[in-house]
Design a protein around this nucleic acid. Structure first.
Lengths: 212, 212
DNA sequence: ACAGAAATACCACTTAAGTAGTAGAGAAAT
DNA sequence: ATTTCTCTACTACTTAAGTGGTATTTCTGT
């Protein structure tokens, strides 16, 4: 609690920008070190400012907030990006998280919520709504996977597929399962037929899905 | 709000089990339909009980809570699994989420927190602590990826690797990038050398990481 | 007891992937 | 200016993966 949270604000709407700056500046454990009116200007000079949290608008003319995070985060990974958005569009949020954002908050929130979100992200949390949290968590679970996994493939085939996904060669799978290589080959053939793919990588992508 | 939340409790410790049952039953919008003293018994007969939320202990003799979720969730995907644990071990939590749990809560919490977590999970949220939320979110971002991605491979190699990961054949990559197949082959060879792998799947697993 | 599904095994073949070099053109850094 | 890096392209070869069959056993449900 000794150090103040240093904040950069990126927001094209002058009114909102100044409002946010006012709210955050008036907290005694926070400090707005710089504000930017759009993504391009931000990207050019933000590395020169020491900060802990970047409050990033998602809808901006020119480069949008998601792209900005994607470009900026790798340069200073310790800085946390808090996305600020009007709409809780799961598509956007997801993409932003994948690009390196750590949380987000809705614009039409109270000042308290904004302050709380900044504190949460600065102290190691990931502010987000219950709905988005659920979406994020669900993307972990092999739910869609389970459908294919359970209804299409036999349990033996599932085992083989798991080993395939680990990158093992047929002969390694064969010795691990104590069956012949030709049997593995046959299983794989059947798996591919059921999944309607024709390579290991396609099968993996189909069943284990890819994030995003 | 019309329907009550129907709950199943799986917990080996009799005292805790009955305490939890008492707490949840006394809420007027909740109903404990059944309790189980261990995972095996639960797995055998839980499908016969209509429920919305399963409160699952993670540390149980015999089959642990994570395994139980993994086996049970696919059978009734609409049921939400709330993990109950003493220690906030990220390893466990992650695995549980991957296996289909939707949230978790610490045992040494107040009755209020338990009730709140159940309500949150039943209403579409994913109760978890700020720390775990952060871990979950971070796992989305291509942070570790970025290291290899940025420091080891050239930008051209990154592009090729992306296409490899999509399961394209060399000739497809070649035509997409408008270069020769042999060039693709060379790039791939170099990529594998840098990553110290010898197959497409290994490279993908190494760079894009695997969840879990 | 029997039908059907699943796992096992084998064969013959084609195609793709991976290994290991050399080498030139162009860009970037020294 | 010269070195170094990257991308490009080629040859030659080996190994793994994928295709498409047949056939036997074993298990499960009727």
């Amino acid at each position: 609690m000794a150090k103040r949270i240093r904040i950069i604000i990126v927001e094209d709407d002058k009114e909102i920008r100044e409002l946010a700056e006012g709210i955050l500046s008036s907290e005694k454990d926070m400090e707005v070190v710089k504000t930017f009116p759009n993504g391009e200007i931000f990207l050019k000079s933000w590395v020169n400012y020491e900060c802990d949290v970047v409050l990033m608008d998602i809808n901006m003319p020119g480069k949008n907030g998601i792209e900005c995070v994607g470009e900026a985060k790798p340069k200073k990974p310790q800085v946390q990006f808090l996305i600020s958005t009007v709409f809780e569009n799961p598509q956007y949020i997801f993409q932003a998280l994948c690009n390196g954002a750590t949380g987000y908050m809705l614009k039409n929130n109270t000042a308290d919520k904004l302050v709380a979100a900044v504190r949460e992200i600065a102290s190691g949390g990931s502010p987000m709504s219950a709905n988005i949290a659920r979406l994020v968590v669900d993307s972990f679970s092999r739910k869609q996977t389970a459908e294919i996994h359970n209804e299409l493939l036999t349990s033996r085939e599932k085992e083989i597929l798991d080993l395939l996904a680990q990158g093992l060669m047929y002969k390694e799978i064969a010795s691990k399962k104590e069956i012949g290589v030709e049997t593995v080959r046959k299983h794989v053939y059947n798996i591919y037929e059921k999944l309607q793919v024709n390579s290991r990588t396609e099968a993996i992508n189909k069943v284990y899905g890819k994030q995003l």
